[in-house]
Design a protein around this nucleic acid. Structure first.
Ligand SMILES: [Mn+2]
Ligand SMILES: [Mn+2]
Ligand SMILES: [Zn+2]
Ligand SMILES: [Zn+2]
Lengths: 159, 159
DNA sequence: TATGTTAATGGTAATCATTATCAATAAGAA
DNA sequence: TTCTTATTGATAATGATTACCATTAACATA
């Protein structure tokens, strides 16, 4: 098993923290591990509960603080899908790159990740970013794209 | 001057309301007028204050209720730009079509609307919507696109 | 490895945007 | 004009997120 403290088992985010002068603490490591293992759209409380199983001493306030830090560092994305609480997901997984866009059902709230962009899509995003960058003198770091509508289960109900 | 109650001065949204069986009330009319006159990214309280000047009897709860209604009707978009309160804007203005995307400065919170899409952009959105619609059997109604980064004023500070 | 500085933490109270409640009001059909 | 009931305004309640502060533990240094 990949023990948390095994010698030489430095995780990929250690450098990110060191570079910013942030300390690598138990809570931060566990929160990142939880994010890395779980998939998609966890609320702060979801994360707190998962973290709590591994290490019950970690408080909810720390979860919020750490998430804010991770968002500022660009390691985590924060989303609002309209259910009154923020949702978080790792910006880039350890393994596969995880950038994706969202389909959101306005009826049942279901969220579909899609990463199977059509060919032109990636190309256009780059092009648009470049154009906007110079037109508005804006240094673009990332983007979010969401489509709203009715999922298959819901499109029967409301026409 | 375009008086609110002049005979025959029916606003464009009257039909929308009638079609859904909703009553056309003073508060709803004033809220829509305020949205129509003002531009961009107002919070519920912003709207409440503007509405209050015109008609002080209207309560904050009504503003929230009406905005929710308008969002559900598709007349208004609701955004979260990360400052802890929802922001609203009219989906389609009376005059110009107002669909646009956003550039958001992660440092100072400034928001830039852009509507000067590059040619391919509109084309691609349509194409993507069509493709996603059939792949995920999802009836797409609309979308949001936001780019995050540093605005001109802020890109000096943080490199 | 022991020590000192101070960033980080955990528990909890406070904040504040949004919702729920409910008696009173006014749209709009008849 | 009358009647039905959707809508309203005032206010209390909710609930996610933040602020606070005494305590702890990273980690640079000796
Ligand atoms: Mn996702
Ligand atoms: Mn806008
Ligand atoms: Zn659905
Ligand atoms: Zn800025």
């Amino acid at each position: 098993m990949p023990g948390r403290c095994r010698k030489g088992a430095k995780k990929w985010w250690h450098n990110e923290f060191r570079g910013c002068g942030y300390r690598i603490t138990i809570p931060r490591q566990i929160i990142l591990e939880v994010l890395d293992k779980s998939e998609g759209h966890l609320s702060a409380e979801d994360i707190f509960l998962k973290v709590h199983k591994v290490y019950p001493a970690i408080g909810l306030a720390t979860v919020y603080r750490t998430l804010e830090l991770l968002v500022n560092m660009g390691l985590v994305f924060k989303f609002d899908f309209g259910d009154g609480r923020a949702r978080y997901e790792l910006a880039r997984g350890a393994k596969e790159p995880s950038h994706h866009h969202h389909l959101i059902c306005t009826n049942c709230g279901r969220i579909i990740d899609y990463t199977d962009f059509i060919d032109e899509e990636i190309e256009l995003i780059k092009k648009t970013e470049k154009e906007l960058s110079q037109k508005y003198n804006f240094a673009i770091k990332n983007h979010t794209i969401q489509f709203y509508g009715l999922c298959d289960r819901c499109s029967g109900d409301k026409k």
